[in-house]
Design a protein around this nucleic acid. Structure first.
Lengths: 234, 234
DNA sequence: ACCTGAACACCGTTCAAGT
DNA sequence: ACCTGAACACCGTTCAAGT
């Protein structure tokens, strides 16, 4: 196994050696990752720096590099085990319902961990504890008659819908916090655009309201219907 | 109009005044934005810094702040007018076909401008020249019997599918470039997981191949079918 | 083996001063 | 009005040295 720390336990190759020989270390990876995780949770990825983590751990920045390869590895390590902190929901037996329930659960879970979404866009999934959701989605697709290839593709598409919603939901929340921040849309549409952009001009006033009304469950339901519809014409 | 530079022409409030009084400026926003755009295109957002732009423009970092409010505004300005650089495609008359064509065009266009995708995730759309695509998508949805509210939601879902694909396609390309880089998935699935994750274990060997086979057009087609299916049960 | 300190090559932005 | 220089408060990481 080339990457032992991708498993549930956060243990680097360096730490694995420490029990055998040499001076015992004052700090360990779990402490570092724990502190990092707290900073991420409270202030987001932008606030996470090696120097900041070092200060809160109580060492010099360079001491961290004995436990993690670089900042990127630290970021990946923060993801391990996050899925296990969320209880696994009861799933309905009907595969179509199951698919929707898992997808919505995935979205709801990540909506409560905004920093995980930010970190995920930098690398790929490193938390084995999250794979049961991928498995359930693929299994349900197969149960609904999709080929394995179609099922994997369907999983990706569902993930894109979940991820996209989270990203722009967060961007909107961030912009709402900044007090005077320039909003671009739909303020940039004026009466003069009514000819070129009739629907948008007509909807401009209701745009914010309609954006707020966007319901992921409804959308995922429709997307799943479309994806499962592929079964009849392979 | 509060934000004149959100229009096609890149002209800031500062520059708008310059023709009237005071010392003529040695540099103008268009030069700054042009240089920024080139750096973004060639090296991505990570390479863009105010200091770097200043050096390439031939001034001090602080001179830039007379033309743009901050780095964020510069980033937003780089988007203006990008849509106009791509020829508008012929669209089929059938609204369902039209919807698919516009969506795929959106994806294809952005696939050729990776940095635009990176910048878009930081703020919202600032290029009025891109709005015709949103208009066409909404118009087609309405033509297929969706309510305006459903059409706006459908647009967002399509955008999430396009955006999500681009983000992870780029992340994959980045990781492929780094030589020895740790890959996490599906290497982390072993024989031992076959019981918990039967489908994934079975597909592990084909995972990369299946990921490469992912076809956005096919997926968008299925998603659109699902979204338009909402028309019959409102 | 583990940690430290100094150093390198960067950041965005403020502020006071120059022309 | 436009630009400069110095300064502030940061970055990630390398490298040589200490215990």
């Amino acid at each position: 196994m080339r990457h032992p720390h991708t498993a549930g336990a956060t243990m680097s190759h360096v730490e694995a050696e420490k029990k055998k020989r040499g001076r015992p270390s004052r700090i360990d990876v779990d402490t570092i990752v724990g502190i990092a995780r707290r900073i991420l949770q409270e202030e987001g990825v932008a606030a996470l720096s090696m120097r900041r983590v070092a200060k809160e751990v109580g060492t010099t920045p360079m001491a961290l590099y004995h436990h993690v390869r670089d900042k990127d590895e630290l970021l990946m390590l923060t993801l391990s085990g996050m899925a296990a902190t969320v209880p696994r929901p009861e799933l309905p037996d009907d595969p179509r319902e199951r698919l929707l329930t898992v997808s919505v659960h995935m979205h709801g879970t990540l909506a409560r961990m905004p920093w995980v979404v930010e970190v995920l866009s930098l690398g790929d999934l490193t938390d084995k504890g999250a794979l049961w959701m991928v498995e359930e989605i693929i299994a349900s697709c197969v149960a609904c008659g999709l080929t394995p290839a179609q099922s994997v593709a369907a999983y990706r598409t569902i993930w894109h819908c979940v991820y996209g919603d989270l990203v722009f939901r967060q961007a909107m929340a961030r912009r709402a916090e900044e007090p005077d921040r320039r909003r671009h849309f739909p303020d940039m549409i004026t009466e003069a655009d009514a000819e070129e952009l009739p629907h948008m001009a007509a909807l401009a006033d209701r745009w914010l309201e309609l954006t707020a009304d966007y319901d992921v469950s409804t959308q995922l339901g429709a997307v799943i219907d479309g994806l499962l519809g592929q079964a009849r014409r392979p």
